[in-house]
Design a protein around this nucleic acid. Structure first.
Lengths: 252, 252
DNA sequence: CCGCGTCTTCCCGCATCATGGAAACCCCTC
DNA sequence: GAGGGGTTTCCATGATGCGGGAAGACGCGG
């Protein structure tokens, strides 16, 4: 994984956490065998892990279908994370920014080899919270890469550069060049590189050392974010980014 | 359960999950030794667990203070839980109920030996999401107990019945009598039993078998929920409870 | 109605893996 | 520069998780 050296031992724990992560990709509920398959584990092992996770409240079994879903402990920790990181204070800021620009404003951080949307995306009724998106094919991902702290800035460590659309950057050198441009400009644009007909601009939320802690992103259609208005959207984002930085994690 | 039969083995996993749960009670960030102390674990063991959790993204270390806080994986799973359980569809319902009653509307489920607020409580700017509250001293707790499914209905299995205020029910027989009244009335009231000057009413969200899957609660001051208006608040809650039940977990 | 495939659950002997004591280390403070 | 708080690393030991396999539980179709 990107997260470099996994501590050699601790495989039981790693596997248990992996079981939880299984619930990322697939549908809402999983059976023991689904999990075993997904993790290439013997069924009995998967079953034991699941039992332990259920006992701790991290999974719960649907009595009807005998399958499992995420449990209340997960919800609790999620909420706690939300407050620990001061995200509740950002909600109104993003909402205001969204109203002012008519675009969808969101905050994302790096999580492993993806960008993870922590809040935002509330344009229609759909929220895209908790969505993982690739780093190489999104504006937020480019921002996170462009100002990545040392150790996370190695593009060769990235898994794939999957081409999601015709415009997706699929080559590492090309990506390197793009990131240079992003650094020079101070913002990143994604023009249909992850999804046709979607354009977004993203600016970095920098920490004290000048590394990107998060990315503040505005997302809409090219009809709204026209070529000559890109700069305006960037400025709107930049106008709030200090406030965002101040509210993110002022926990001490 | 009340976490009853923990599968005999699996102590590594149990401990790792326990480390995560540490972040419930205390302040936002914990050091390795804090965790070791909290769990009565040798420091080296705690350290190894933390390392594994960090590698999986469940914890992250603050580079400045060398302490740890909940990581992005936790946020992601929390969001996933939120959607898996259809909670996003409940938000507007609760907001409407809150506006109509001027009280704070919330949804809670049982989690272990506590009631856990999943959404709601947005009266001022404060949200009480993710808050654990005792079962015996809250309206939602009484509801969850009164219609508890078999296996979770044993009051003697509850830990303590701590008296939080003068009015808190501290005796199991007294609680049994109260639950009988709750069942007969179809709703529960908490009149300053968890916190002086706070009154709340709660109605059960029943599943197909007639057991409480969740509790829908309205919370305010006694000035708002006066004695002769309790029934009105109950009716307001009951008027929405079917909708809530329909939106909760229609996942199949 | 019975046999078959697919699921979950349980059991148990073996070797692997987590364990935790101890020591090195790092950084502040006094 | 000694002292105390914390973190990190190492390593021999045996407890502990491992996973093959067998036993239930269901649902389906012949």
């Amino acid at each position: 994984m990107a997260t470099s050296a996994a501590p050699s031992g601790a495989q039981a724990v790693r596997r248990a956490l992996g079981v939880l992560q299984c619930f990322r990709h697939d549908g809402p509920e999983l059976g023991v065998t689904d999990i075993a398959r997904a993790m290439a584990l013997p069924i009995s092992t998967a079953h034991r892990l699941v039992l332990t996770l259920v006992a701790a409240g991290f999974l719960e079994r649907d009595p009807a279908t005998v399958r499992y879903r995420l449990g209340t402990s997960v919800a609790e920790l999620g909420q706690l994370h939300y407050f620990q990181h001061g995200l509740h204070r950002l909600d109104p800021v993003l909402a205001r920014l969204g109203r002012a620009t008519k675009a969808s404003a969101s905050i994302a951080v790096r999580s492993g080899d993806d960008a993870l949307v922590l809040i935002g995306g509330t344009v229609g009724a759909e929220s895209s919270d908790g969505i993982r998106t690739p780093l190489h094919s999104t504006a937020m991902g480019k921002v996170l890469l462009a100002w990545a702290p040392p150790g996370e800035d190695d593009l060769d460590a990235l898994p794939e550069l999957v081409r999601l659309t015709e415009r997706t950057i699929g080559d590492r050198d090309e990506l390197r060049a793009e990131l240079d441009k992003v650094r020079a400009a101070g913002y990143a644009v994604n023009d249909g590189e992850s999804e046709p007909g979607i354009r977004s601009v993203s600016v970095p939320v920098l920490d004290a050392d000048g590394f990107s802690y998060a990315a503040l992103t505005l997302r809409a259609t090219p009809e709204l974010i026209t070529d000559d208005r890109v700069r305006w959207f960037v400025d709107q984002a930049l106008a709030r980014v200090d406030q965002v930085a101040a509210l993110l994690l002022p926990t001490r």
